Simulated assay, not measured.
Amino acid sequence: MNYHEETQDLFDSAPDYAFAHCIAADAGMGAGIALTFRRYYPEMPGAVLNAEPAIGDAIRYVGPDDRVIYNLITKGESAQLPERSDFEAALRTLKEALIAHQEKKLAIPLIGAGIDRLDWRESAPFIQELFADTDIEIMVCRLK
């Protein structure tokens, strides 16, 4: 596993990186970086809902630009805050999906640390430990 943090806009990542971000099972995507995803991929919330998401899922979506995006279902409703256990369950599902699809590059924001208020100082070590036994490159994108 190759984990590194960069100061750059997530959406400036090379096209061979899959993205992942946290959303609710209701696929509201009305705030935070999820709103930016919704603006780039307006059909994605409907596709997520069609997949009948449950907490702990990582719903894979391929955009019209062929970008792979994983929607990590960390809570039931957009207005809620996630439980750390649900966030971690979604990350475990993400790992399985990346391996199954042979995707080797992942770009993420500080997932869970924005409006979901999870502590990045706990999330970053969890991600590093979870993916330590893989050959997946994880690039964390921090805005300036």
Rank of each mutant, 00 (worst) to 15 (best):
P15M: 03
P15H: 06
P15E: 04
D16S: 11
D16P: 00
A18Q: 06
A18D: 05
C22P: 05
I23Q: 06
A25D: 09
A25F: 04
A25Y: 00
D26L: 02
A27Y: 08
M29L: 11
G30K: 10
A31Q: 12
A31T: 13
A31L: 11
A34F: 11
A34N: 08
A34Q: 06
L35R: 04
T36L: 12
T36A: 14
F37L: 05
R38F: 08
R38W: 01
R39G: 09
Y40E: 06
Y40W: 09
Y41E: 13
Y41W: 09
Y41R: 06
Y41F: 14
P42D: 11
E43S: 13
E43R: 10
G46C: 10
G46L: 12
A47R: 14
N50I: 00
A51D: 07
E52W: 09
P53K: 12
A54T: 15
I55G: 03
D57W: 02
A58E: 10
A58F: 11
I59H: 06
I59S: 03
R60M: 12
Y61S: 01
G63T: 13
D65L: 03
D65M: 03
D65W: 04
D66A: 13
V68A: 15
I69L: 08
I69K: 01
I69Y: 01
I69D: 00
I69Q: 07
Y70M: 03
N71C: 14
N71T: 10
N71S: 15
L72Q: 03
I73R: 03
K75N: 07
E77A: 14
S78A: 14
A79N: 08
A79P: 00
L81I: 10
L81W: 07
L81Y: 13
P82Q: 06
P82F: 09
E83R: 15
E83I: 09
S85H: 10
S85G: 13
D86Y: 10
A89K: 08
